[in-house]
Design a protein around this nucleic acid. Structure first.
Lengths: 163, 163
DNA sequence: GTTTATGCAAAGGCTTTGCATTTCA
DNA sequence: TGAAATGCAAAGCCTTTGCATAAAC
């Protein structure tokens, strides 16, 4: 789907959601949605606030938080807590279900997909009678880059001791 | 392992960790470790603070936070962010690797194990050259109890409309 | 005797809330 | 017109920090 089509599509979905829920269709809400779908990857409220400040629709943080709740409920946005206190978000349409690999060395977040997770979800659903809505799998560790840097430092340290 | 043995074991592990890292072996640190291993399931800082207040070693919140960092580094405690801002913790020894099912209705957290996750970890490790240290799989949704309650409310509402 | 840890209180950062003003329906 | 959303600032909550005191080594 082309970017313009995606924007059009999520606009329609949000519009339907607001109408169905008895919420008002304010320009702020659609401007926020548009900006979110213009961002690549993850973002936090502060980044979104900064970007909105540079548009002609300069919304307040309070409105951002309110609107995020609506978008989460509408399933147009996903929320993450990658171990820090501040929440991270990402657009939910377009990109399918995926999980996250988090480097505890440099903080980099990579995405990956594994169909086996779906099997685990199904099992939980069956065994516990749980109605699964979504999941989050975070794999923590050290990325290849950081491992490499760490090795180089070790070598350098050895060289310094035994020149 | 009997509870007393576990206490003895983690005490020893922490003692070794502190010694190796050049940290001091204060009574507060061991009292906190002991209290953590006396708690069942998950807890947050506030709950731990409350429990410590009732012992003869009444540590400050600052010391709790400091000590949690050490215990996390020593791998004697695990930290979780179950979607809320405040961090949840649990003891890391005894209980093996497990994952969490979180009810977004009542907030209840259940645990489960699924060996298939290990396969996913291995794949990430192989494909990305990532050195995996740990993971967290959170499955969100509505638990059986909340589904039941929701159904009852729907029935009651129907009965009220059509008596 | 040094250096590190503790405890208190204050500051910090992210998020929520209260209330006057504006705006959508 | 009436109810709901916005924006601002203040308050809230969890967490971190600075500094004097106390304790480990």
């Amino acid at each position: 789907m082309a970017p313009a089509d995606i924007q059009q599509n999520v606009h329609r979905l949000f519009s339907e959601y607001l109408e169905h829920g008895g919420h008002r269709k304010t320009p702020e809400r659609f401007a926020i949605l548009r900006e979110i779908y213009a961002v690549d990857g993850h973002f936090d409220i502060e980044l979104l606030y900064g970007r909105m400040q540079q548009t002609k629709c300069q919304v307040s943080r309070a409105t951002l938080y309110n609107t995020m709740d609506l978008l989460l409920d509408a399933r147009l946005v996903r929320k993450h807590q990658f171990g820090t206190t501040q929440a991270q978000f990402e657009k939910a349409q377009i990109r399918g279900q995926h999980d996250h690999v988090i480097c505890d060395g440099c903080g980099k977040v990579q995405e990956f997909c594994d169909p086996r997770i779906q099997n685990v979800r199904n099992t939980v659903s069956e065994v516990l009678g749980f109605r699964v809505s979504h999941h989050a799998l975070h794999i923590h560790g050290i990325c290849a880059d950081c491992q490499k840097k760490s090795n180089e430092r070790t070598k350098a340290a050895r060289a310094a001791v035994q020149p």
